[in-house]
Write a protein that binds this DNA or RNA. Structure first.
Lengths: 202, 202
DNA sequence: GTCTATATTGAGATAGAC
DNA sequence: GTCTATCTCAATATAGAC
């Protein structure tokens, strides 16, 4: 029970702090969460938090950077999709949806800052998430128009319509214990949109 | 310059407090806004706030109730729409969109609480907004299926697809000084959805 | 109804021992 | 790297005069 060789000197504390902060920021919001609560939940004292992160803002920014790194890593795995544009857009949306479910607390935190007003939280560029997704879907839609799979029209409208279906499905997951939209519902909504994109103009 | 007949003893103070609270809650979030700031912005002292509303929670709840009353009043004016189901759903979404623009601070506050986690704000049933809109669009879609204007299918998917387009357009208005989606873009997105709802199943 | 003045609590942050 | 103890400040809220 004596402290044996501990080359990694209780680095757990850092991880516990991050986990506790994520949980509390998500449940109560950034401003309403105190450093005292975070430390209590992590089982450490306040100076430990100030040691690893510099401030309350510091631990928040660390969480945001970690999340965005994961997002970019996910996007990097998208080149392997094949098939029709409809199929690939569906696949992309399913992947983003699944990743959001798996990281629900992180996504909740991001939404809470994005819509919840800064709350005193330090600025972090949250739009890059949306911008990146717009880029990806835009490229796919353009390809679909080029190949004739999709009827000509304003590309932006098509992209936003697809993104809208994905967004609302994710938002339902965020805000309801029993979400009224699941992954399959999202797919069906996206198929309605693609039916509209293939239909002859009325 | 003496205080003349003042039967309405500076009731303005109450209105100024509500306006200031709305502005500050919207800009900084509920938890991050202090009573001191609200009173400063309203040009009154703290006891005035505690006199009219009972607490910080009280002024917040008053704002929420006022907003919901306006929303219900808007819904009451919807019976007059005529035309195809597509036309009426578009009309409904345009009305909600316009009303949201006109009351952008209120909508921002609602979103900030809905997605932004309670932030220590007292509970208020925000889902009733969404529930009511789902009801309205659902009834219209069912009518469209009955008349043959819309192809048979899962009504919920159709309703959510339409609501998704409206939601994302409003959310863009909330979060960007220069929204990438305007009212016309929303209409075009909704038309894509309705094209899909009328198209023959592929 | 509105003020001044103040009570009380808890926040973020740090000094310094170990 | 982690602790105890403490500083400083601002928060919500109220008492009591006018």
């Amino acid at each position: 029970m004596t402290t044996t060789t501990r080359l990694q000197p209780t680095t757990e504390a850092r991880e516990r702090l991050l986990a506790a902060a994520l949980d509390l920021f998500t449940k109560s919001g950034y401003a309403a969460t105190s450093v005292r609560e975070i430390c209590l939940a992590a089982g450490v004292t306040k100076p430990v938090l100030y040691y690893y992160f510099k401030s309350k803002e510091g631990i928040y920014l660390q969480l945001m950077e970690d999340s965005y790194s994961l997002f970019e890593a996910m996007l990097a795995d998208l080149g392997s999709f094949t098939g029709t544009v409809r199929r690939r857009v569906l696949h992309f949306c399913e992947n983003v949806f699944d990743a959001s479910i798996q990281q629900l607390p992180q996504v909740k935190l991001i939404y809470s800052i994005y819509f919840g007003t800064p709350q005193g939280a330090p600025p972090f560029n949250l739009e890059q998430y949306y911008d990146r997704m717009l880029q990806v879907i835009s490229a796919l839609m353009l390809e679909g128009i080029g190949s004739g799979e999709i009827r000509p029209g304003k590309v932006d409208d098509m992209v936003w319509a697809a993104l809208a279906c994905m967004s609302i499905a994710i938002e339902e997951q965020l805000c309801h214990c029993n979400p009224r939209l699941d992954r399959e519902a999202m797919v069906r909504m996206l198929n309605i949109v693609f039916d509209g994109l293939e239909a002859r103009q009325s």
